[in-house]
Amino acid sequence: MTRLTLRRGHDRRVRGGHPWIFSNEIETVDGPGEAGSAVEVVAADGQRLGTGYYNPRSLIAARLLTRRAESIDTPAFFLTALQQAMAYRRAACGDLDTLRLVHGEGDGLPGLVVDRYGDVLSVQLLTAGMDARREAITAALRELLAPRAIVARNDTAMRELEGLPRQVELLHGEAPGPVTAAINGIAFSVDVTGGQKTGLFLDQRENCRRLGGLVRGGEVLDLFSYAGAWSLHAAAYGAAGVTGVDVSAAAVAQAAANARLNGLDPRCRFVAADVFDFLREHRGRRYHTVVLDSPAFIKSRKHLEEGKKGYLTVNRRALELVAPGGCLVTCSCSHHLDRATFLTLIAQAAQQARRSVKLVEMRGQAADHPVLPACPETDYLKCFILYVE
């Protein structure tokens, strides 16, 4: 096995539990060191730190999968890791058949995502190391869950950073059509081969449920509505009317279909429009609750300042549309934007909109997207509920 020796003084983060090793932290590579190959990682003093995989093309040159001396190239390794991930979810989430089964670093399997939609699994092999172990991963998933189909949504831009092609692949079974999945008792039609990410965003499940005490009898505006998760929850929880806005006509059509699937279409309407344009054009309109589930405006640290301006602008305009005594539910999934900075941006947006706000609650991602305390990058989702005067 190839051995990576870290530079002196560059092992503190890894010893603390973080699984990443950057290319500038490596002193020597003893062995072939091919993309995706297994590596033993040692500190400058020779102490073993763990086993992972290596990619010389990536800024994150190695990712650790275990701190023990064991092979990471067998179905047995992944079977054990998957069993641990499922045990955590049974304890934290209960018995759900629509959820994230593997959340990368949060489950000790960096580069691997597995979402479950009943008997269909949608996976992402995001790194060369996980892509090289697709057969072992597929075998472990089949043994543990006996799924009808396993679809690999390997069409994300992250794979290009690893020198991998972007593509959608069938790893097991027959290509499924739309799959019906339930979130908080609401049915969604999921396109596991063509929808965003793995087909549906599951990380807001618990936050959507929080709408139950906020929206009854009021008008709700859902911005960046995608498949209508927030909209349908608002309607199901008693909102008088819901308007969802998304720039994607396909997403709007999907959201409308999901509303019909649940018999909620009489109180839901969906508009295909740029959210910034919609907010400008509807100044003066008032909603009891505005949900702002923005996409990641900050894809990398170099885009931090530009992205902060985007969050400031969209939150200011959203606040202008909240009726006095109403609520703004605003989110950010950019891990480069920490909670304190996001809260500061909200305060600035409120000042610019000339609105007084009170923070009701700070929330994060659903429990099936676990946060690894030693890896702050896993704590990415911010969801703030604000009372607006």
Rank of each mutant, 00 (worst) to 15 (best):
F278H: 13
L386S: 01
A128D: 06
L279R: 11
T98D: 08
L82A: 02
A366M: 10
R12A: 00
S294M: 13
A146E: 14
V14E: 01
Q124I: 13
G325H: 06
A272R: 06
V113D: 03
D265H: 14
V252D: 01
V360H: 06
T156C: 08
H172V: 01
D338P: 05
Q84N: 13
L381S: 06
P176N: 07
Q348E: 14
L232P: 08
R134E: 11
D191I: 02
G50A: 06
A182C: 03
F224E: 07
I183K: 09
A128P: 03
V271P: 00
A91S: 11
R116L: 06
Q124T: 03
R280L: 15
A250V: 12
N24T: 03
R285Y: 04
R316Y: 10
Q167R: 14
F224M: 06
A44E: 02
Y117A: 01
D222N: 15
M362F: 11
L321N: 04
R148F: 04
S189E: 15
A367Q: 11
A249Y: 01
W230C: 02
G307N: 07
A182H: 12
G9V: 00
N207S: 13
R67W: 03
C383W: 07
A69V: 09
L223H: 05
A349P: 03
C333A: 10
